[in-house]
Design a protein around this nucleic acid. Structure first.
Length: 560
DNA sequence: ATCGAAATAT
DNA sequence: TATATTTCGA
């Protein structure tokens, strides 16, 4: 009764039918355990000595999902031998003799768990977890045939996307990732601390997710409470964060997606907690900006029962707005333009799984706040204030920038440092910026106080960049850009910003400026500004009803 | 239902 | 204090 992938796809009552190899020299004990296992609808094959068991395994590698091996006080060698020869099979050791060194040896040799006798139903009921763990955790290469189906089955049950192309409404959770994390956990617990093997090491994460409160009594006698319990109450929230979520968007095959930026708490058996932050990427490593071409259509709601565990009711995780994450955010905002920069769209553009709209909204709020806070302080922007267009012809030592230096299209400049509100590196060529040219490093907190042009919608302007670098640079449309309109509002602080659609006297001045800029592309952009991003221009145009934009001749043909 | 601002929480 | 989350009005 080998399970084919198909069968397994339908392996609804998953743990049932699990094939268990039982190795126990004591007939009585074996019968007892076997009976319990069978009562759970597991399929048990009992062996009295390791040789029989091993030959059974080798003769039919797909025969078993998990093994339970009893370590008799007299002859422990047999079980060690088994362990060493059945590495592919998740093996649980059991004994009435809880000798620490024996336990450790078992674990060291690859046992997934050491259970002390007698084996209660509770203990036995959870053995499938090891199977799942193994199925998801071992690399494809190492994955034994008997486990593949399990993986597939579970994945399908969880509606995860597998190689075999199962799409559905995946939970936006990449199990492979998950298992990776858990694996680490396991290694840690086994390797360093914790002597007692957690009864559900591999699922520790999942387990702790369950109860948001405190509880977790999942020690050696973990019970079946694994998933159930609090189901959906907090769900609307929990879903998003999820365990690591984050990657897994629709696309799965590609390279490793980015890591999560979310902190997660890890509760250890001993009750200790640790916070670990998986950062998007090591600071020193350059990463091309997001790759996950994931579609933004994340998980839907109709998640069936099983998803419970997956969704790991992790309570609120704090989103760590790392520079990388923030950068994405900024890029998204920029791309959208001020008008379109709404949480939901930003969220989409960011393509960071696990982020919620709320997270983004919150960040956006802060972002705007800071922006505004800084605005009023800007004084040098009189130049814009002047009616005399001439003013514009010279560039202040310290150009006013709508945004701190930032190269929008560049894939990532090095590791952006701290200033959250500053943008990642890049400098404005030809214009004196206050960061050393070619020095992508961020300006410390100062950059925070980026100086948007007063009264101007910084977002519409975008950031300073090298003019010729990007196509859209000089493709100012004739249409009025919102940013220009309220350029006059020097007193942004004290007076409400003008509606972007409201025409204004200063308009002509602005137009002149624009014209000149267009006609003299070799000159640095006044004020160290860069033209709006293509996207924002397009968005604006389309907003104004112009949908057809000849991008071909952007740079040059802009008559007066 | 979503956005944005304000209130809260950590 | 700063920043993230939650709440609440529009």
């Amino acid at each position: 009764m080998v399970c084919t992938a198909n069968d397994l796809q339908k392996w609804k009552d998953f743990p049932k039918g699990l094939r268990v190899l039982l190795l126990d020299g004591d007939t009585n004990s074996a019968a007892e355990i076997s009976a319990k296992l069978e009562a759970m609808d597991f399929i048990v094959s009992t062996f009295c000595n390791e040789n029989e068991a091993l030959s059974a395994i080798s003769s039919r590698t797909e025969g078993f999902h998990v093994a339970i091996v009893e370590v008799s006080t007299s002859s422990s060698e047999g079980c060690y031998k088994f362990l060493e020869n059945a590495k592919d099979l998740p093996t649980i050791m059991t004994s009435s003799n809880q000798c620490l060194s024996t336990m450790m040896k078992c674990i060291a040799l690859g046992a997934v768990e050491f259970l002390s006798k007698p084996l209660s139903e509770d203990k036995l009921r959870n053995i499938w977890q090891h199977v799942v763990h193994k199925a998801f955790n071992s690399g494809a290469s190492v994955l034994s045939d008997s486990l593949k189906p399990v993986k597939e089955s579970v994945a399908s049950t969880l509606e995860l996307q597998m190689d075999n192309g199962q799409h559905e409404n995946g939970m936006s959770i990449d199990l492979d990732k998950v298992s990776k994390f858990t694996d680490n956990d396991l290694e840690q617990s086994v390797g360093s601390d914790k002597f007692p093997a957690p009864s559900t090491p591999q699922l520790k994460q999942g387990a702790r997710l369950l109860d948001d409160g405190d509880c977790q009594e999942h020690t050696n006698s973990s019970t079946e409470k694994e998933n159930g319990e609090h189901e959906h109450e907090g769900e609307s929230k929990s879903v998003e964060i999820t365990c690591e979520n984050l990657y897994a968007d629709g696309t799965l095959p590609p390279n490793k997606p980015e890591k999560t930026l979310i902190k997660e708490e890890e509760d250890f058996v001993d009750g200790s907690k640790r916070e670990s932050t998986v950062s998007a990427h090591p600071p020193n490593r350059k990463v091309p900006s997001n790759i996950n071409g994931g579609t933004a259509s994340p998980n839907k709601a109709g998640v069936p029962s099983v998803s419970r565990d997956t969704k790991c009711n992790r309570k609120k995780i704090k989103v760590d707005w790392t520079p990388e994450l923030h950068k994405k955010f900024v890029q998204a905002v920029e791309q959208l333009g001020v008008d379109q920069a709404i949480p939901s769209r930003i969220l989409e553009l960011m393509k960071v799984e696990g982020l919620t709209r709320h997270n983004v909204a919150s960040h956006l709020q802060k972002y705007r706040m800071h922006k505004r806070q800084i605005l009023p302080k800007e004084e040098d922007r009189r130049w814009l204030h002047q009616r005399d267009p001439m003013q514009r012809s010279y560039y202040p030592q310290r150009p006013i920038m709508a945004f701190p230096p930032y190269q929008s299209n560049h894939t990532l400049s090095p590791a952006p440092a701290y200033p959250m509100w500053g943008q990642p590196g890049g400098h404005l060529p030809g214009v004196q910026v206050w960061s050393p040219p070619g020095y992508p490093v961020w300006q410390p907190t100062e950059s925070w106080h980026w100086k948007p042009v007063s009264g101007m919608h910084a977002d519409a302007w975008g950031c300073p960049v090298l003019p010729p670098a990007q196509g859209p640079c000089f493709s100012y449309p004739q249409q009025n850009m919102p940013g220009f309109h309220n350029a006059h509002a020097a007193d942004y602080s004290s007076s409400m910003p003008r509606s972007t659609s409201e025409p204004h006297p200063e308009e002509e001045v602005i137009d002149k400026v624009v014209k000149e800029v267009i006609s003299k592309p070799w000159l640095p952009m006044p004020l160290g500004l860069k033209p709006p991003s293509t996207d924002s221009v397009l968005a604006e145009l389309s907003r104004q009803g112009i949908s057809n934009i000849p991008l071909g001749n952007k740079g040059s043909s802009n008559p007066s």
